[in-house]
Amino acid sequence: MRAQILQRLASGEVLIADGATGTMLQAAGLPTGTPGEAWILERPEEIMRLHRAYVEAGSQIILTTTFGGTRARLKAAGLDVQAGEINRRAAELARQVAGDPSTGSGQGEVYVAGDIGPTGDMMVPLGPLTYEAAVELFAEQAQALAAGGVDCIYIETMSDLNEAKAAVEGVRQRCDLPVFCTFSFDAHGRTSMGVSPAQAARTMVALEVPAIGANCGHAPEEVLDILPQMREAAPDAYLIAKPNAGVPRMVKRQVVYDATPERMAELARRYVEMGACIVGVCCGSSPADIAAIAAALRIG
């Protein structure tokens, strides 16, 4: 039997999460404009191949490919009617790569995190989404992910504090898995909705969310300023750092994220020094970034 993810974190261990999904699937041929979620049912082998690549590079937590998996976001591609199936299946695919928790088989001890992203709609009064409707969207998604066998729920790229609260509440309505929540601080050190790292941390602590942090956002260096602010506001929380692999630029019609795997590894080591215990990379990264981080953290 292997240890639950929270026990692993409590033991002081640093766990390595995974890297980008969207940009990797596009590199594998996902057409622009088609959400990655479409491949969960259509091309499950590609989804599993991606998970396997991250596990082989050293990821100990893999995120399901369900960032845009709320019914609200799947609607744009006409996939909303299959929302439950898509989320459950995504969890099963990741589970298959990670191995069976009851026996501890598979690729060592790899955890599956059920990924939940924003609904894409603004909340009342700025937009049409009511708090209750948001809770229900997240509850449905969490239920399907839990049914597919995830180890925890991982809410990410949040910028609206109310939407994040609704997500936590929705998850709790339908399962008792640990809930993690990270925010995207991409506007002068705050989220685009103006939420500061301390505010985000305090709110999540009040909701008893054990692991909080920063993902996506702007330059990965900015996370070095964000982590201490979260630490101060939430001394006992497990901190997560999963920034982008630099800032995207277009060079000769090719997208480049300007941070190398070596740079991400160097930053990862500094995040850990600042107390981060889950480290991964967001947009623009690949298994090469995870491999570099894994090497750096094992030696370090």
Binding site: L126, A187, G189, T191, S192, M193, G194
Partner: peptide, 11 residues
């Protein structure tokens, strides 16, 4: 200047 955010601008 980064002193106000999307909700401010939208309201």
């Amino acid at each position: 200047r980064g002193e106000l955010f999307i909700p401010d601008l939208m309201m």
